[in-house]
Design a protein around this nucleic acid. Sequence first.
DNA 1: GTAGGGTTAG
Length: 698
Amino acid sequence: MAVALSLFSAKSLTTAATVSPFPDNPKTLILEQCKTIKDLNQIHAHVIKTGYLFNPRVAENLLESSAILLPGSMDYALSIFRVIDEPNPAAYNILIRGFTSKQFPENALMLFRQMREDGVLPDKYTFPCILKACSRLRALEEGEQIHAQIAKFGLGSYGFVQNTLIHMYANCGEVEVARRVFDGMLEKEIITWNAMFAGYTKSGHWEEVVNLFDIMLKSDVEFDEVTLISVLTACGRLGDLELGEWIHEYIEAKNLKGSLNLITSLVDMYAKCGRVDTARKLFDEMPRRDVVAWSAMISGYSQSNQCKQALSLFHEMQRQNVAPNEVTMVSVLSSCAVLGALEMGKWVHSFIKRKRMKLTVTLGTALMDFYAKCGSVEYSIEVFEKMPSKNVLTWTVLIQGLASNGQGRRALEVFSVMQEKEIQPNDVTFIGVLSACSHGGLVEEGRSFFISMSRDFGIEPRIEHYGCMVDILGRAGLIEEAYQFIKNMPIEPNAIVWRTLLASCKVHKNVEIGEKSFHQLVTLGPAHSGDYILMSNVYASVGRWEDALNVRGQMKEKGIKKTPGCSLIELDGMIHEFFAEDSAHPHSKEIYSAIEGIMSRIKLAGYVPNTAEARLDAEEDEKESSVSHHSEKLAIAFGLIRTSPGTTIRISKNLRVCTDCHSATKLISKVFNREIVVRDHNRFHHFREGICSCNDYW
DNA sequence: GTAGGGTTAG
């Protein structure tokens, strides 16, 4: 400021008539040295006093410094604008640009309207800015009107205007119109192509990105790193590893590895194509990593179901003092949800609050989903109520969260509130609604929603919806109806549908339909160990031990191994992974060796673990004790591991928890006086003092 | 003076 202000010193002012205080390049003197509104105020006061404000160049410079360079100074810019007698297009352009760049696109549009009313002619600089404002607002109608005016003013062939038109149409969801503008252009610059790529990228037309890139290559047009970033993003979404690797080779050959953004796209592409290790290698080799690079790698792990790695990379990011943003936290929370890491996720929540991060729709929804998946549905609701904006995913997560936590009725109430608010449900919402019905035993409601979804909402049921319907009928004991329902399905039933029915047959002891379902599963192949176990258990449920053993024999003959159970347990904020028969975990030895001793305590409490399934397991494999179930072992284990009183033990299992395990959990909660939460296929069972609080009617 | 790019939830 020293230089600029010295221009207004008494000495300078006396010579103002001969030496202009605004020499050839006044911009460098005023604009670049105004760092705060206060600086601007001082200059403003001077120019008013000295009458320089009536010099259009002076006014424009002041306007530019306040509207473009300084943050949060649009009011100030407006006050300068208002005293300009007859503002020229340039003055309007500066303000329009200011409003657009400072996230007030509505004001930019209003000012543009005023400009037209005042009879000021927009020029080639006006339109790119005002189109950008339309883009931001997704104001298609306004954009179309402006397009018409562009044609009227004869600026339709101007490159800058056309490029922004492409961007505007694509951003407003009209990619096809954008493409028509693109195709109509005789001279396309790299930016033109990139605008089209960006349009396809924003609207998720990944296929088109790759197709257009193909055309670009064939027509020998040059491309740059911005082009490659868009194409790599598309490769990741499409799983097009071949093209992605080709671009990687090109980057190596042309030595473009210096671009941080480009390497981040490569990391993202490899992670999304399932090559997480390659992604990590590139990530580790980066000379510098910003928050986006870290987020891309963390989400890479999270999306490839390597959630422990995602969290450990997040910890590494913290150690390296890189500040995470909202996007990072979404992937971190989603990993916590998968792992059932309640304590870690709670910490993330407080971190978000402490850092005053914006509760965006995505972040809020991820937070809600995390709480719901960890069995804390009340916290999930609390977040929902605090969210400033919500979308269909937010409502869907709430419905699913309530449904999976045993509050089917409440989930349906939320669904009706959602309709009152005129939020259009989608196919996934209906999966939540139908699972609420299956969970709550609401058969009639389920039937009526199933009909309504296509009739009233135009959503054709997918295989998942049919699966839910089979679950609703099957769980309610309407096995025959469920079977007929499958037979009459207009789409081919898959293994999940038959497995659902088979599971119902076990609960309701229906051997006949159980056998039919099992037969379908074997025919559909490849056989799943769980299917054999289920069928065997159907026989066992009615005391047909020979048949039960026979099925297990078939499984052995075909060489189908039981998938080892894997459980993730969070204890005092640490995630432990336990595999069945695993001796690698530090706690395993102590756990398994102590099982015998614990058994006697359990027996004293009146529990007989030798149910049908355990007995079969024991007969099948001598090594296995009567406490043969993984969850059971874990439950016992956690009776052993010393935790502070009141610690919640959370067991999330990848496999369905059998009723036997449930009884073990119930018992442990009683014997060891612990609250135990079992997550079983996204259903929750909260056990306290031997009582399960959820309304599951298994 | 104006235009294009990398990470996110069910």
